[in-house]
Write a protein that binds this DNA or RNA. Structure first.
Length: 271
DNA sequence: ATGGTTGGGGTCCAA
């Protein structure tokens, strides 16, 4: 048996609950990490998830903005959140799975929503960009305080950076666009090396094949223009990397009725 | 170069 983990920036879980239900029914993940739930804890539609068998829910909500939730049909032994940059934003939730549940050994799944960073890629002119860079630095320091060669850890979520040239529709056109600037890409590289984390998507589909998980709402025809970016990621600790069996980007979901601008990313891990 | 769309909460901000 394999275990299936998925991540999806849902852009309002209440508005798009029917889409989440469809995804769970059609793709049967064991655990789903959601970002941008855009609701407080008490407003999260828990009963709809429980009805589909996802009765274990780790939640870090916030009114109106951001917010992350990890829903699971496997029992969650422990959950915790860490506040980054002392901003009070709900951008992280960790769920711990006891030995024998997700993997033979204890496994921690970190669900992240990294700040988008605003429009101007200059930390002096744009406080949101400064926040994004500071968040990445804090995450790098946090990663270095772990021994990922010996831990089973997964980092999934909307990281709001497309690190490789083939993670965007045009490397040249996006060099000054927040999400693909050299300063962000450099910081993400440092973060990956700090683990080191293993990029599950690129392990299964190496460059130069293009991979996108997000298509802007602002394009008249997202599919025809295909100006995508790979903003969503699933990373594995080195110890967990050999378990990786497959990876899927559910591009179809971008064409569903009233879609999120992000699509689900799915990995299967041998347990 | 510019502007394009969406969601939440309230008459604008974040993405």
């Amino acid at each position: 048996m394999t275990k299936r983990i998925a991540t999806w920036n849902i852009n309002s879980v209440r508005l798009r609950l029917p889409l989440v239900e469809r995804f769970l029914k059609e793709h049967n993940p064991d655990v789903l990490c959601l970002q941008e739930i855009k609701c407080r804890q008490a407003e999260f539609p828990s009963s709809a998830f429980t009805a589909l068998g996802y009765s274990h829910i780790a939640l870090n909500g916030q009114k109106g903005y951001h917010g992350v939730a990890t829903v699971s049909r496997l029992p969650i032994a422990d959950m915790s959140t860490r506040e980054f940059c002392e901003k009070g934003d709900a951008r992280h939730i960790a769920a711990t799975f006891a030995p024998g549940i997700l993997q033979r050994d204890e496994t921690v799944l970190h669900n992240f929503y990294i700040p988008a960073g605003g429009d101007i890629p200059d930390r002096e002119l744009n406080e949101k960009f400064a926040h994004k860079l500071d968040f990445l630095d804090e995450l790098t320091a946090w990663t270095m305080s772990h021994n990922l060669a010996r831990e089973n850890a997964i980092l999934a979520g909307d990281l709001n950076i497309a690190p490789l040239e083939t993670d965007v529709w045009s490397h040249k056109a996006l060099l000054k666009i927040v999400s693909h600037t050299p300063v962000e890409v450099e910081r993400m590289k440092r973060l990956i090396e700090a683990g080191p984390w293993v990029d599950a998507m690129r392990t299964m589909v190496p460059e130069p094949e293009r991979l996108y998980t997000w298509w802007s709402y602002r394009a008249a025809n997202w599919e025809l223009a295909n100006k995508g970016r790979r903003l969503d990621h699933i990373w594995l600790s080195q110890r967990l990397a050999p378990s990786l069996k497959s990876m899927t980007i559910l591009k179809d979901a971008r064409g569903w009725d009233r879609p999120s601008d992000h699509v689900p990313v799915i990995v299967d891990l041998e347990d």
